[in-house]
Amino acid sequence: MNELTVFLIMVISTLIGGIYLGLLGRGIDRKIAAKFQSRIGPPIRQGFWDLKKLMLKQTIVPENSITWVFKGAPLVALVTSAMLLVYIMVPYLLYLTGYESPMFAHMGDFILVIYLLMIPAIALVAGGFSAGSPLSTIGSQREMVVLMATELPLAVTVIAFAVKMSVLAPSMPSFSIFTAASNPVWNGMGPAGILGVILLASAFLFIIPAETGKIPFDQAEAETEIAEGLLAEYSGKYLAFFQLAEALKSLGVVALVVVLFFPQGVSTIMGGQMIAGGINITVPCEIMFFLLKVSVVYSVSISFIRVSMARLKISQVSKFFIYSVSAVSITGFILIMIDPRIMAM
């Protein structure tokens, strides 16, 4: 097959699968949370029903809003969230299927991924400010603060990975997700390095709920405080776009963590191809295993944390990320940096 055809198939299947799995993930998350709270909870299909209903509902645009920003923001959020998912998933799928080609070596740049993570949030902020309601304005301010607070630990993690990749695979581009997927960061690590990676992973445990706006970091929406904040004025299809964007982004962030920290596929672990009844089922097995890892990370970092904590105040969030989480990730970074020297001693 031609490289471009492979690429297009991957992108389209990622988008369709991403929308489906993102909404399914929402449903499962709500079901798990309900179980923790001794409720029955909505059916798992609820996310699809909500989306369908919102698409049919009347869409109201506030009179004193800046109309083009208000209408444009949901689209920008949706498109960039989809791009984020594609940029993370396609290189990883290429790695899983074992399709190697020089054209794909540079695919999935970390720095681009960081910027793509920011754009849906910025779109939300723009939409909130343009709505012309004090509640949305407060929500937007809070979203900005959360966004800025999570930047440093995120950047530190990425740099740590790039440094490690340049050691593990000097011939491949250091900032590429494909490189990170094919060379698991745990390879060639001493005790200090392993501790460092664990610290980075635990920092991500809190970065995921912050990026996806879940309790304890849902200040921008904070139902009981500012009545859904920056989404307060959104209705109908624009709200549906934001919900879809959020579902895609959640999946993307979780997939990023899986790719960075646990990229090992079935064939790596089992040490060979999986063959059942004469048919090579490695690829389906790999995808199932990946989905299993995604659902574990999703439920631990989103569902479990959100049912076990109260919402923090915005001042506490900024302190928590700027001091604690940054300190943890910088320590992890330093440990990874000095690990080769400790090993050499």
């Binding site: 709270q37 309790i215 009981t224 109260a310």
Partner: peptide, 16 residues
């Protein structure tokens, strides 16, 4: 009070 600070699990527990 638990619901006001976003701690819904405690809210459902106490009401249970």
């Amino acid at each position: 009070a638990a619901h006001e600070v976003g701690f819904d699990t405690l809210f459902y527990t106490t009401w249970d």
